[in-house]
Design a protein around this nucleic acid. Structure first.
Lengths: 244, 244
DNA sequence: CCAAAAGTGTTAACTGTACACCCATGT
DNA sequence: ACATGGGTGTACAGTTAACACTTTTGG
């Protein structure tokens, strides 16, 4: 959690947050032909990462809360967000595991015991342009870095399961809502888009047919060519048409 | 809410339920070629219905809580349930509207003011066999009946929006997860299945091609013919193959 | 000129849609 | 025999997948 001093003060007043309800965010990025997840690592806790998360103010909508939490981590505003599930098994984060996780982190425990109660968590995933993100470690964090989706570090609670569910939902929605573009820079080549699809859906596409299919959707506009210096035909770049 | 006396007593202890978090259930049924929703009407409140809902015990998983709430309403166990969204706008159920709704219902208000706080609600929808349900009005309800999806009564809060979202999710998942069978009796004719699909997706299908498509999925087993007494060829009945 | 990758024309395979005919059923 | 609705064969159309060829780029 990345709390301002003002927010920490508010934490003392139990009623300022909704109790026993949290938000966990899976922040997806794409870089080096790999799908990445942004994960902070709590200080003084060995070899354990958690999803960036937070709580909901009494007068705050849950989508607003998720945007606020994401802005604290990535510095970005108006992020593409999707609410994909609620995680509320009775034993998903017991007081024991929470306490264990809190060892050595005196600040949190002082805030009161409400944080040790059983929590239900709302899962959001965010799709961000990797190149635009400046990861920010919060005041309780040791680090905040990107991790390869295929080589995730050790995750606390059920956060590993939450990431898996997020990916499944993204796979299901990729064609339906055409949201992949949020993971790429403004202008991109067809090859980059294809690699993105292949990585997310974990299956290969034929270069020729992929190109035609994407162009037939009528959502791309062709920009200028991109000269890389390679000894081959320069590819066009494309941009996602916002609205026509 | 259909509370037992034991549960009402527990209500006095605020900590027995998770505060400010509720579950709302959209119970879908199919009858007379129409999609139906089971809706209780609170007593002493004029012309206003609500979704059947409830709260989550401290040591209870959210799916278990939804099953419990549904069992209280329908008498059925092991209902098909899908969690389709969370409703948490800051103003979705303010203290004012809640109080207004509570006028004349002294029992609830006596339970304490925690129920007047802002709530976040987890939306589930259930698919049940209409013929197996015995609607049960809870202790706070005047009635509990099926309503036509196309002629819903006046609904409180954002419950109308919740039902709409539930339907959209059902439409999206109908082909993907093949869940329509839960809305039909164990054995059904192809025509009944077609009418179900047409009603949910709100578009017509060709009789011949629909039949072939369903059979090609390999999930139906053909049972004996159904003789209705009509002067035409008797249709086969089918059953959904559980697993092979 | 050559290798490598981009872009596109053409064809084959598949899937979905439409029309047809035959079959079973009770009057 | 006839009307009615069920089941299935077949042809047509549209979509998707596969193959091939041409174009562009820098060495």
């Amino acid at each position: 959690m990345d709390l301002t001093s003002e927010e920490i003060e508010k934490l003392g007043v139990e009623t300022s947050f909704i109790q026993q309800l949290s938000i966990d965010c899976v922040i997806f990025g794409f870089h080096g032909e790999q799908l990445k997840v942004l994960l902070p690592k709590l200080r003084d806790i060995d070899n354990t990462w958690t999803l960036p998360g937070g709580y909901i103010f009494q007068k705050e909508g849950i989508d607003d809360a998720a945007q606020r939490i994401l802005q604290e981590r990535t510095g970005l505003r108006d992020i593409y967000l999707e609410q994909f599930g609620v995680f509320g098994k009775a034993d998903r984060a017991t007081a024991e595991t929470m306490k264990k996780l809190m060892e050595g982190n005196s600040i949190r425990v002082k805030l009161g015991d409400w944080i040790l109660k059983r929590f239900v968590s709302i899962g959001y995933y965010a799709l961000v342009d990797f190149t635009e993100v400046v990861p920010r470690a919060g005041s309780f964090d040791e680090t905040c870095d990107w991790y390869d989706m295929k080589q995730l570090p050790n995750l606390a609670f059920d956060h590993s399961e939450i990431i898996q569910k997020a990916l499944e939902n993204l796979q299901l929605m990729l064609d339906y809502k055409l949201v992949g573009f949020h993971l790429l820079p403004d202008a991109f080549t067809m090859k980059e888009l294809q690699k993105l699809y292949e990585t997310i859906l974990d299956k290969p596409f034929r270069r020729d047919n992929f190109q035609r299919k994407m162009l037939s959707l009528g959502i791309l506009e062709r920009l200028e060519k991109k000269f890389t210096g390679a000894a081959n035909k320069a590819p066009y770049t494309y941009r996602f048409k916002q609205r026509n």
